[in-house]
Nucleic acid binder design. Sequence first.
DNA 1: TAGATTGTTAATCGATTAACAATC
DNA 2: TAGATTGTTAATCGATTAACAATC
Lengths: 242, 242
Amino acid sequence: MKKTTISINVVRRLPRYLRALNELAEEGRERISSSELGKMLGLTPSQIRQDFSAYGEFGQQGYGYNICSLRDELNRILGTDRNYSVILIGAGKLGQVLVENFNQVAKGYELIGAFDADYNLIGRKLSECSIYDIRQLEEFVQENQADIAILSVPMDSAQALTDLLVQVGIPAIWNFTNVEIDVGKSGVLVENIHFADSFLTLSYFLTDKKRTAEQSNKHERESAGDMPGRSYLLPADRKGKG
Amino acid sequence: MKKTTISINVVRRLPRYLRALNELAEEGRERISSSELGKMLGLTPSQIRQDFSAYGEFGQQGYGYNICSLRDELNRILGTDRNYSVILIGAGKLGQVLVENFNQVAKGYELIGAFDADYNLIGRKLSECSIYDIRQLEEFVQENQADIAILSVPMDSAQALTDLLVQVGIPAIWNFTNVEIDVGKSGVLVENIHFADSFLTLSYFLTDKKRTAEQSNKHERESAGDMPGRSYLLPADRKGKG
DNA sequence: TAGATTGTTAATCGATTAACAATC
DNA sequence: TAGATTGTTAATCGATTAACAATC
């Protein structure tokens, strides 16, 4: 356990490690080396050992890492064992889909309430969770601990609802609106799912590839070799290295 | 126009630039300096100038950048002017939501077909787009150019459908399944929206913050100052710098 | 024991920031 | 012209990779 500050790059790899370990555990595997895990995820063994060592000494020389205990450590590090309570802000179509998939996506988290301003929705149920009037939010969070808010509202109300969430003291927002929401200096955590940004990134690489192809067509295939092309764009870091 | 290889970090900032520029254009602003744009997005002026200069000389000394022409350049770089055709694989709830929001998310792209294996869905319409039998996919792409596939299917069929997409020659996949899909050495582009990974990242920082708080409680508030705490976790790079 | 593989230190590589001449 | 601000080169900072002693 060395590094004092852990970079965002390291953090974003942790869920991927957890995913791989869950798979391995299901297959009944007992142990794995940094080098095998590296092959699975397209990372170097060095990087994997560095990443883990930022949090402790989880492996054993000559043996590798015990899959179940490493998985447990990651769950602890990520906080999936903390029984966080989640609320949904915006119970429209997207919100509904998110709730339905919620248990798949977020094992160990509990959805305790949904909020909307639409009277057609208020009073209904989403899975096992009630939809409340957004004006009841403050009251609700005074009586119930809410750790994370899922924000799935129209773009034009995103900032107003962010302000509300900050005001009532929600510590973390999972933002699905395609807006750069502003929490000021509140210290409220924001994690964005910007669909459009992700889509445009894909569009970029596709365009880049086409441009390269157009280019080499211009050069009238003097070099007839197959151009490799990026094959994987993973969030924040590349899979294969070129 | 200098750098030959452009890093993924730069690329992932481009959609954010575009978003800011669209906003500014709507406000009727004409020009902006790297330093003002930097303030908007929490980036240094240097970084912004570096990023743009990888693609060309879009600014003017003493003036800054013309908002509309910079926006146009970015659209060109990202390929939003290329009229890409998109298909949807998996017309379930998530797929439906994605299609409904598609025009908002991806202006300038056309959804030309949806595919599913469910006979309750096949033959219906999603917005203005027909849902076809997935077994017709190969035939369909022989007759229609399809540039990007949105993959929104259950986790256990994700890889099989990826294989199919690769086989029929789709060049880019926007993957919404929480699975590390494998396109082998095909060179097919993959951009992931891993909901779970994103959620766990948020959970991590929340937990991290709580741990820090617990820590400083242990130290019996000798230093009574307010701890700042990370306020923004943006994809791939941090907003405020600590 | 010998082989495997860790955790960690040092080396390398890459990305961000700073500085500044060029110029609108 | 003077002030502003670019594009780019150089300096700094940080992250990844390599190497290796420690040890299971």
